[in-house]
Design a protein around this nucleic acid. Structure first.
Length: 584
DNA sequence: ATTACGAGCGCG
DNA sequence: AAAGCGCGCTCGTAAT
């Protein structure tokens, strides 16, 4: 029997509980959302954590309902860590009201209740490109401009409101196969939020000594902030000499592009790809400078001081932060760690990193979703692109890969566009699915992923851009339409791949918590990193092989949940290493 | 002095 | 050789 644990800041029916800013109230509901327990009252984070420990022991599978997993769960984890408990609290299941609301706001497969109309009404095209989300406001720590379920702001933090919101959300999900998929997505999104909170809280092992060694090797000894390190400075001087411009600031693109032009180098920008291939003695040191400058500014000593403490990098993962359902991150660029500094991601002594990567996830997702026979066959070969190459590109893997990626991104020019006819002949069903998505987007329609995450509908500005009278407007409208078509085309694949990965990490987290339940708390494997189609587990060396098995099991389970008994294979590349840089 | 934005580059 | 999708961060620069 499912039991729900609803968490809020106060109760309308018991106003005396509102007294303290940091208070929280907990209510138990049964599967039919009938109340089965009186509100438990807590004041402050420490007692919330104490309550959470008590509840997770008595009802380990209870589903925690709250406005925002990251905010509530992080408070619990922080307070829990401060009391140095026997075993850290681990919430197993959640229903994140904010994330669910964001899913339901656009989801096509809903019961059209007034609730759905209300929450989807506030979408405007102006928001497009930057996904605005409903933000929590019932957390005392939230900044004042953040608002959750508008309107009726002040009531929204109450226990009663949370329960009402939960009922409305459940009522909006139809009892149909599509509804079931949406339910799975909601559960996975919330489970992902639990994993994300834990990963951010416990952090990624980051060896500061190694990082500093890398920096010194590349840039020279550390200098005060704002002053170029020695090797970078030397190179800057070399460049100013080679361009006969003593006053040149190589960090200023417009300054630099003018200096390059004065020296007869025909460039319109200072970007890497434009500089490459130009024949001038400054090009080589300049490209080296840009690389070093990047390391210095984006991942230098300042970064290290800001984002790494106690040997761990603590990013904040933003679940559903990308419109396709991928995660985003805030702080330190967690999802853009350059290959060059991955040497600093080092397992602790006696521990290993299990780094797993889903190989060519997106074309496999496309094969399974569209049930394309040829592409499904290709997925069962040794290497997907190799198989595609054999099936239709004369064994040329590079061509096969470019063609496949171009099809999923909507390439219109160059090599990949020219290869499209070949691909269409080879995989008519898969390509038809992509083109249907593109056409829908071009015409202003919406597209849904396999589990039902849906693109926002175009806003009034997009729609009016399609109302044309002149030839010129017509051409512009066509471009705008095609841009949206590429977006919806890619949404289908990227979004469904994100769902597979979400299930993968959710299931892996569950397995790690149950398989190693007997192990000593200080030596249990921990999820430490997630990057779209890649997962990292930090584990005692003796458990690494069992972790490896869990990673494979979890991927197989993700595939079953998504696609049932599909014949498409989803192989992983797994490496058990000391350093992240040693994986692949 | 503060804010907004594009350039450029890192990741999948 | 670079383009076709999705992001975040830092910088310089322009606007306020």
């Amino acid at each position: 029997m499912t039991r729900y644990v609803v968490v809020a800041t106060h109760s309308v029916s018991q106003p005396e509980l509102e007294a303290q800013a940091a208070s929280s109230v907990i209510q138990f509901l049964d599967a039919d959302l009938q109340e089965i327990g009186h509100p438990m009252v807590n004041f402050g984070s420490a007692s919330l954590a104490a309550a959470a420990r008590d509840i997770t022991q008595k009802h380990p599978t209870a589903r925690w309902v709250w406005s925002d997993t990251t905010r509530w769960y992080r408070r619990i984890l922080e307070a829990d860590a401060a009391t140095r408990p026997a075993r850290p609290i681990a919430i197993q299941r959640a229903h994140d009201l904010r994330l669910t609301r964001n899913l339901l706001r656009f989801a096509a497969n809903t019961v059209r209740t007034s609730y759905i109309d209300e929450i989807s009404a506030d979408w405007h095209e102006e928001n497009h490109g930057t996904l605005t989300q409903f933000l929590p406001e019932n957390d005392p720590g939230a900044s004042p401009q953040e608002t959750l379920f508008e309107p009726h702001k002040e009531k929204n933090a109450s226990l009663e409101y949370q329960i009402a919101e939960l009922r409305l959300q459940f009522a909006a999900i139809p009892h149909s196969p599509a509804g079931n998929r949406l339910r799975m997505l909601i559960a996975a999104e919330s489970a992902g939020a639990i994993a994300a909170t834990e990963m951010g809280f416990f952090g990624l092992p980051w060896n500061e000594t190694e990082h500093k060694r890398l920096l010194e090797e590349a840039l020279g000894t550390e200098t005060p902030h704002g002053q170029r390190p020695p090797k970078l400075q030397a190179l800057a001087e070399e460049i100013t000499q080679l361009l006969y411009t003593p006053s040149l600031n190589p960090d200023s693109p417009q300054d630099l592009v003018r200096a390059l032009q004065r020296n007869g180098i025909p460039v319109n920008s200072t970007s890497k790809w434009e500089l490459k291939g130009k024949d001038h003695p400054v090009i080589e040191p300049l490209l080296r400078y840009k690389k070093m400058y990047r390391l210095y500014t984006a991942n230098g000593w300042h970064w290290l001081k800001t984002w790494v403490r106690d040997g761990r990098f603590h990013p904040e993962y933003v679940v559903g932060g990308v419109i396709t359902g991928r995660w985003a991150s805030r702080g330190g660029g967690a999802l853009q760690i350059p290959r060059g500094i991955r040497e600093a991601v080092l397992a602790e002594p006696g521990w290993k990193l299990v780094v797993a990567d889903a190989s060519q996830l997106e074309p496999r997702i496309l094969a399974a979703m569209s049930r394309d026979e040829g592409l499904s066959t290709a997925s069962r070969g040794k290497d997907l692109y190799e198989s595609v190459a054999e099936q239709g590109f004369g064994g040329d893997r590079a061509h096969a890969k470019v063609a496949m990626l171009g099809a999923m991104y909507g390439a219109t020019t160059g090599e990949s566009a020219r290869l499209m006819p070949t691909l269409r002949k080879l995989y008519p069903t898969a390509i038809a699915a992509l083109e249907k998505a593109a056409r829908s987007g071009e015409q202003g329609g919406v597209v849904s992923t396999h589990l039902g995450r849906t693109t926002p509908a175009p806003g009034p500005r997009w729609l009016s851009s399609q109302q044309t009278s002149t030839q010129e407007e017509q051409a512009r409208a066509g471009n705008i339409a095609r841009t949206r078509g590429r977006y919806t085309r890619n949404f289908l694949v990227q979004g469904s791949a994100a769902e597979w990965a979400l299930m993968w990490i959710a299931e892996l987290r569950r397995q790690l918590a149950t398989v190693f339940v007997e192990d000593d708390d200080a030596s249990r494997p921990e999820l430490v990193f997630f990057l779209h189609d890649e997962i990292m587990v930090h584990t005692p060396e003796r458990l690494a092989d069992r972790v490896h098995e869990c990673v494979l099991d979890a991927a197989a389970q993700a595939t079953r949940w998504m696609f049932g008994d599909t014949t498409v294979e989803f192989p992983l590349t797994v490496a058990i290493v000391d350093r992240y840089s040693d994986a692949k």
